[in-house]
């Protein structure tokens, strides 16, 4: 591991000021991804600014029903929070589906949003990788890509975003608050992760040196009946090969409101807008759910070895929406 400096931020302003002077600095949350990547030589910061002591560790219910989650709230605390479990059960399920108990106890919400892909070419410096070394090439496209993107990828990168939490946040229109030396700002999650294009190394739209301070979930009554289903090769401690966060509100057999987001299919949590559009006002039937999934997945461009994700995601849409609909009818 390359030698690096360490500084504990005393406040949010202090944190962003510390980072502003040091372009090769990183904020340190739980460190569960960053420190691993430093050991592997993928991340080589000169300075770590530890933000775990900042006063950003609370989950607050606002009077309008929105939920504001501090950036340093640990994954474990987020998943256990009663308002999260009541209002956004899919978020709690998503967080609990990730990593291991030990990791969730230290991993933070802000860090979770910023975690890097687990593409084997990215995490091994003996391979080229456009995300790690821009312009060096993407061996995954013709190489091993069983768990790579089928949606929104480019000729430059087919890596996926590994977060479970992010999938639920995408389904519920999360807004990211951040702080820079110039003051605070906000980004909708839909804007937070830019398209891959020819700049796969640019993973967020955050201004340089920005510190994530909070994530806000607007009030969403539909989310009270929501689910996260993660499909993975082993029963725990594995990244998804496909996942879904979904919520549905059905009245009189007709879909009134629906939220669908996919994980492990794209460089970002993938909000399934096409599927949602197809379902609003449609009958809440397996056939309609399948047609909606097909509408979303029409844009899928599977590679040689990850075509299984298309039927997998279709099956997840039908299965989870059917489950939620049946539960609501009980």
């Amino acid at each position: 591991m390359k030698e690096f400096g360490y500084n504990r931020a005393s406040g949010v302003r202090d944190a962003v000021a510390l980072l502003a002077h040091e372009p090769e600095a990183r904020f340190l949350g739980g460190g569960t991804n960053l420190v691993d990547l430093m050991k592997a030589g993928v991340e080589t910061p000169d300075l770590l600014v530890d933000v775990r002591g900042l006063p950003l560790g609370r989950v607050e219910l606002r009077s309008d029903g929105a939920l504001t989650i501090g950036a340093t709230v640990t994954n474990s605390d987020l998943a256990a929070h009663p308002e999260v479990r009541r209002r956004f059960p899919a978020l709690a399920e998503a967080v609990l589906a990730g990593a291991s108990g030990q990791l969730r106890n230290v991993a933070t919400v802000g860090g979770n949003l910023l975690q890097r892909t687990r593409c084997g070419y990215f995490t091994d410096t003996s391979f080229p990788c456009n995300k790690r070394v821009p312009g060096s090439g993407c061996p995954a496209i013709t190489g091993e890509h069983h768990n790579h993107a089928i949606l929104g990828a480019s000729d430059h990168c087919v890596a996926t975003n590994p977060s479970d939490m992010g999938v639920a946040l995408a389904a519920f229109d999360a807004v990211i608050s951040f702080e820079t030396v110039d003051g605070p700002g906000e980004l909708a999650l839909s804007e937070f992760y830019p398209p891959v294009g020819d700049t796969p190394h640019v993973e967020t739209s955050l201004p340089a040196g920005a510190l994530i301070t909070a994530v806000t979930l607007p009030a969403a009554p539909v989310a009270a009946r929501s689910r996260y289903r993660k499909v993975r090769e082993r029963a725990s401690y594995a990244f998804a090969t496909g996942s879904i966060a979904a919520a549905v509100d059905v009245e009189g057999g007709v879909v009134r409101d629906v939220r669908i987001a996919f994980g492990a299919v794209a460089s970002r949590p993938w909000r399934a807008h096409e599927a949602e559009r197809a379902l609003i006002g449609a009958p809440a039937t397996a056939q309609a759910f399948g047609a909606a999934a097909d509408a979303e997945l029409a844009a899928a461009k599977p590679l040689a070895h990850n075509g299984y994700k298309v039927p997998l995601l279709r099956n997840l849409v039908v299965s989870v929406l059917t489950e939620l609909t049946e539960e609501a009818a009980r």
Binding site: G120, Y121, D124, S126, F127, P139, G143, E144
Partner: peptide, 13 residues
Amino acid sequence: LRDAAFGGQVNGD
């Protein structure tokens, strides 16, 4: 899992 072009293991952890 190996990369055919490089001969290196892609999942060596």
